[in-house]
């Protein structure tokens, strides 16, 4: 043994060595993702009450107005209008609603399915575990978006179909995470003790295993939410999945492609809205992950 105790210390030391300003900046950075995500949620929930918008109504005289122009009704289209005269701000808000709705539903399905399957496979082991591992092999090897395209394309358009199509592969990461944590927890003393005492398996999983899986799953929820919103937008962009009267950022971006040279704003704004949301959920997920790792369950 040389001085590896000291040599390894710097990682910690360095964090402390940053100046006060840097630390203040870091603590602000911590709030940014959650604050921006909150704005999206508020816009999705309350936006429609403030911004009147009819997703199917068209106003031909107001079509393709640039950002800041005045519409025929005298209001100002801050972000312009699209090819049928609909206000872009309204489209963004309704698009946020769609993304939030599908993101939340899909993540909920994926979390429940993934955690339950992962717990069972990890705790029971044996055939259940082997079966799960093989299913995961298949779903990991095949591109998720292609699976979603095929499934959503085969069925009638609708929110439920999109949720199912995106969930089909989305639960896998939750199952892997839960399975891994369960496998290691199963060997811990308190779990073995509970087993020896004859506590029934479902109760052990609920009381002794699930609480420890909770934290990493929450971090994964944030990460997956972004990926699923991205997936939904991708499907809508390809014209698959959602009914035509539901506004989605992906569909708006696709619709704007035809007007790129004359009305760039139709494609640009929803893309920024989408990218910002995905980046922020990613950052939030990373933050949660590193916090839980420092808290250290595993």
């Amino acid at each position: 043994m040389t001085d590896d105790v000291i040599l390894r210390a710097p990682a910690v030391v360095r964090g402390r060595s940053r100046g006060r300003a840097a630390r203040a900046a870091a603590s602000i950075m911590r709030i940014v993702p959650i604050a921006i995500i909150a704005i999206y949620v508020l816009a999705a929930v309350f936006g429609p009450m403030i911004v009147p918008f009819d997703p199917v109504a068209t106003q031909i005289v107001d079509r393709l107005l640039p950002p800041g122009a005045t519409t025929s009704t005298g209001s100002v289209a801050v972000l312009g209008t699209d090819s049928t005269g609909r206000d872009m701000v309204g489209q963004l808000i309704y698009g946020a609603r769609t993304s939030m709705l599908i993101g939340t539903l899909t993540v909920a399905v994926c979390t429940v399915v993934g955690v339950v399957v992962g717990l069972l496979a990890g705790y029971l082991g044996g055939i259940a575990d082997t079966l799960l591992s093989r299913i995961i092999d298949i779903l990991i090897a095949f591109p998720n978006i292609v699976l979603a395209i095929v499934v959503a394309g085969l069925f009638e358009r609708g929110v439920a179909v999109v949720v199912v199509a995106l969930s089909l592969a989305g639960w896998v990461s939750f199952a892997r995470l839960t399975r891994g944590a369960t496998l290691s927890l199963r060997e811990r003393e308190w779990v073995s003790a509970a087993r020896v005492l004859g506590v029934p398996a479902p109760r052990i999983m609920l009381r002794h295993v699930l609480p420890f899986v909770f934290a990493p799953v929450v971090a994964l929820v944030a990460l997956e939410f972004g990926l699923i919103v991205l997936g939904e937008a991708g499907l809508s962009f390809l014209g698959i999945g959602l009914p035509h009267d539901i506004v989605s950022w992906g569909q708006t971006i696709a619709a704007g492609k035809a007007y790129l040279s004359t009305a760039w704003w139709i494609s640009v704004f929803p893309g920024i809205a989408l990218a910002l949301l995905v980046v922020m959920t990613g950052l939030l997920g990373d933050q949660l992950n590193s916090r839980f790792q420092r808290g250290g369950v595993r």
């Binding site: 043994m1 040389t2 001085d3 105790v5 000291i6 040599l7």
Partner: peptide, 8 residues
């Protein structure tokens, strides 16, 4: 001894 700073 280990940690005395000799490798440093």
């Amino acid at each position: 001894e280990s940690g005395s700073g000799k490798s440093i």
